[in-house]
Design a protein around this nucleic acid. Structure first.
Lengths: 148, 148
DNA sequence: AGCTGATTATCAGTGTAGCTGACAATCAGG
DNA sequence: CCTGATTGTCAGCTACACTGATAATCAGCT
């Protein structure tokens, strides 16, 4: 191993550097794009994790997002405070909270999706449309690949 | 805008999700690969930022890494404690510290580069070699593109 | 029914990364 | 020599996400 085909020693060609700074840029674009809707990128993630899969328990939503269930608590607290999601105990399993998008949540989500699409387009602007698609599918392949 | 060519509403196809989780995976791979050398991914970044550009001030190194100069202080404290870098005042400008890799630092760096190459290869394993190269260059294009 | 172990949501505490703001020392220009 | 900018340092703060503990609830077993 470690013989050929490496990234080269330059800092600017290492994946750690590239992924970090790509995400920093995207985060800033997300934040600006989502500001009119009163949410940030993480909260958009939660709304997306709920959309189309409702009703879900908090734990299920956390697993979809890949975060800890204790982290989801505070995230839902703020979204509930903004009136975008509702929590109420599951009738069939009272340990669980059923988490659903409210009507306002659905409306905000559809607007926020468009705004974040613009943000992603801005990040990918220097790439050809084909290169942009390949980047997305390559990342999907990496992320969805089983762990080892 | 926001008409066609979007990423789709699935969480798993959004760049924010993908970049975050790709980086989480890589961080874990980095950490494991670098453990034998007593450094982590951030410290490798500092060593890389110094290599080939020495001698440099702390501020110059921080700018190359894209971090704040106050963050660099603690990073260099630990690397100096490990004997991998040296700091001494610049004779020509005594506000500055000249930061250099020690011999041990250079040796550790070359080993750590190989180990981190293995980590990157592991992350990219599910891609074809061509797709892996395209991913890296696409990220470089995005990150090096001027801000707006 | 009662008991035991697992699951869920929640909270307090901890850790990490990175920043801002303030400071002293130093430099550069007039 | 004086003013303003730059550098390194430190204290304090923010943001994020975790661990560990707790109470409520469920499911299986006896």
């Amino acid at each position: 191993m470690s013989t050929s085909d490496g990234p080269g020693p330059e800092l600017s060609s290492r994946l750690g550097y590239l992924l970090k700074h790509a995400r920093l840029r995207l985060d800033e674009l997300y934040t600006n794009a989502l500001r009119p809707y009163g949410i940030d990128g993480r909260e958009l993630g939660v709304l997306l994790a709920l959309a189309g899969h409702e009703p879900a328990s908090q734990q299920q939503a956390a697993q979809r997002l890949g975060i800890d269930r204790t982290t989801m608590v505070a995230l839902l607290d703020t979204l509930q405070g903004k009136g975008l999601v509702s929590r109420h105990p599951d009738a069939n399993d009272r340990r669980r909270n059923v988490v659903e998008l409210t009507d306002a949540g659905r409306k905000t989500l559809s607007q926020a999706i468009e705004a974040s699409d613009d943000a992603e387009r801005a990040l990918l602007a220097p790439l050809t449309p084909q290169a942009a698609r390949h980047l997305r599918t390559a990342l999907q392949t990496i992320v969805t690949h089983p762990d080892s």
